[in-house]
Amino acid sequence: MAVGRTLVFAQGKGGVGKTTLTSNTAALAASAGHRVLVIDLDQQGNVARDLGFPPNSGDDLMSSLLTAAPLPISKDVRPNLDVVAGGPAIGDAASVFASRSARGSSDLADVLEAKLRPIEADYDLILIDTPPGDRILVEAALSVALAVAIPTRMDEASIDGVTRIAERFLAVTPRNPQLRLAGVVLFAISSRTTRLERDVRNALAETLGDAAPVFTTRIRHLESAAADARRRGLLIHELEQAAVADRTARINALRNKTSLTDGLYARDASGLAEDYQELTRELLTRLIEIENEAVVTT
């Protein structure tokens, strides 16, 4: 069953923006005053990197899943934003829980639901980042979600990944009938490929039918900003501010004929920051739409 207002980012293909979207939408929603929890179910533990805290072993999360311990929540990593960090130890979850449920004990989805239920009322929004391939982890996340958002780039392999999530989706609906598809997010889209973008949108719209939208806002391609953000542990809207300061520093360095050692690659992250702002607005609006439907039908 769905827990709280939980949104999962999932995609069968790696590197399509699941983590970046999770971190940035979470932080933007939190900055607007919503209480947000991010759960990183990926052994890569990249959420920590995006938010600028040291890599986590994932041991605490893993042992919480295996014992009665509550989820290891790091409070207020940004105002209103709490995080459960993932890390390498989570890589074992699949095999551990596969053998567990073979022995008839509760599976990962049950455990996750039990851990989240007592804290669901503490948050206006719970976002879960999932690994690209791990069936058990992805299905557990979907089992507790109200909605899933699927990011994709525009290559064929990524678009195929969208259909792979549809399979996971169907596998989970018997135990979580509330799960809905929030929509598809186009990620890292170059402004030079408008015709391609239009065709991809049309193809996706056809596949999705009236089940869900392809979100109007796409996240633009800006590798320099993405690199800066992860290197500095800043979210894109934070990088936007940093880039302004960096510009001033550049100009001063130029005036004083000194050189700038640790400048940013991105000169201006404001367009990208605006994309995230708009997308977050669309996502939250869609989530409430789904929630209201769920209330009407239950």
């Binding site: 069953m1 769905a2 827990v3 709280g4 207002r5 933007l28 929603a29 900055s31 607007a32 005053g33 919503h34 669901e120 009322a121 948050y123 206006d124 929004l125 109200l146 509330q178 809207h237 936007e240 920051a273 605006e274 995230y276 702002q277 977050t280 607005r281 939250l284 609006t285 989530l287 409430i288 929630e291 769920a294 209330v295 239950t298």
Partner: peptide, 17 residues
Amino acid sequence: RSAGLAGLLPPPRRVTP
């Protein structure tokens, strides 16, 4: 960047009984 995002989420309610 938080402009327009406040107030989008009403206080959470239990969707499930």
